[in-house]
Computed example of a mutant assay.
Amino acid sequence: MPEWFEMSVVIAFAIAAVFFFAKYRETATALHECERMKKRLSSDLDRYRDVPRLRALRDALISTDQLPVDDDGREHLLVRDSERQLYHVTLNHQAQAVSEGQEVTYRRDGIERLLQELGD
């Protein structure tokens, strides 16, 4: 076999290897980005999956007689946390409407503190 042919074959294989590894890195990067986006979107879906439950909880806490009430007047509900663990919550229901712009405070450690709206 002529020497120039062997060199041509070696150079062709070297160029093919460079293109192969470049394409492999590009594919690996795309798969990594896809996994990252899947995890992010999955956590977003988990958050939005909880929205109807949170709305139902909000409506139950604000309106009257929506939650089950025991003989002592306490209300009961079941709520799942971020790890989907189920919790039993017992409440003494007391809801008061607050007008827009009105500040609501509570006392902790003897100091009056401003109550922030959930989600702020």
Rank of each mutant, 00 (worst) to 15 (best):
G101H: 12
R25M: 08
R47M: 09
R49E: 13
M37V: 13
M1W: 15
V89E: 00
A17P: 03
V18W: 01
T90V: 15
A12L: 08
V51L: 05
Q66E: 07
A12E: 04
I11L: 08
H32G: 14
S42I: 05
V79C: 01
D59C: 00
K23H: 07
R113Y: 06
N92A: 10
K38R: 14
D50Y: 02
F20V: 12
L67S: 01
L118R: 08
E117Q: 15
M1I: 15
L77N: 00
V89L: 15
S82T: 14
L57C: 02
Q96V: 14
V89S: 00
L54E: 04
E100H: 06
K38A: 15
L114M: 06
M37A: 13
L31A: 09
C34Q: 13
F21R: 10
P68N: 09
R108Y: 11
I62P: 00
T29C: 01
P68Y: 10
I11G: 07
V18C: 05
R53Q: 04
Y24R: 15
N92G: 03
F20A: 05
L86P: 00
D50C: 05
Q66C: 04
E75N: 00
D65N: 05
G101Q: 11
E6F: 12
L67V: 00
G119R: 12
S82Y: 02
R113K: 11
E100C: 01
H93Y: 02
T105Y: 06
A22F: 15
R108S: 11
Q66D: 03
Y24K: 14
S42P: 02
Q102V: 07
D81I: 04
L54F: 05
R47S: 13
V104L: 03
P2G: 13
L91D: 00
L57W: 04
R108H: 11
L67W: 00
D109S: 08
S42A: 13
Q116C: 01
V98Y: 03
Q66K: 11
L54R: 06
D59K: 03
K39Q: 08
D44H: 07
D65H: 04
R40F: 10
R113E: 12
I11R: 13
D71C: 06
F13Q: 11
M7L: 13
D46M: 08
A97P: 06
D46I: 06
L77S: 00
E83Q: 09
K38I: 14
A12I: 10
Q96L: 10
Y87V: 04
A22L: 14
A56E: 06
Y48M: 03
Q94I: 07
G73A: 11
A14Q: 07
V9K: 09
A56T: 05
E83Y: 06
A60Q: 01
A12P: 02
E103C: 03
L115T: 08
R25L: 07
S8P: 01
P68W: 10
Q85Y: 01
R40E: 14
L61M: 12
T27K: 15
D70L: 06
R107L: 12
Q94L: 11
E83C: 08
R53F: 01
L31V: 14
A28S: 11
R55F: 05
V69A: 02
V18Q: 03
Q116N: 14
L118T: 09
I15M: 05
R58K: 12
A16Y: 07
E35N: 09
D71M: 10
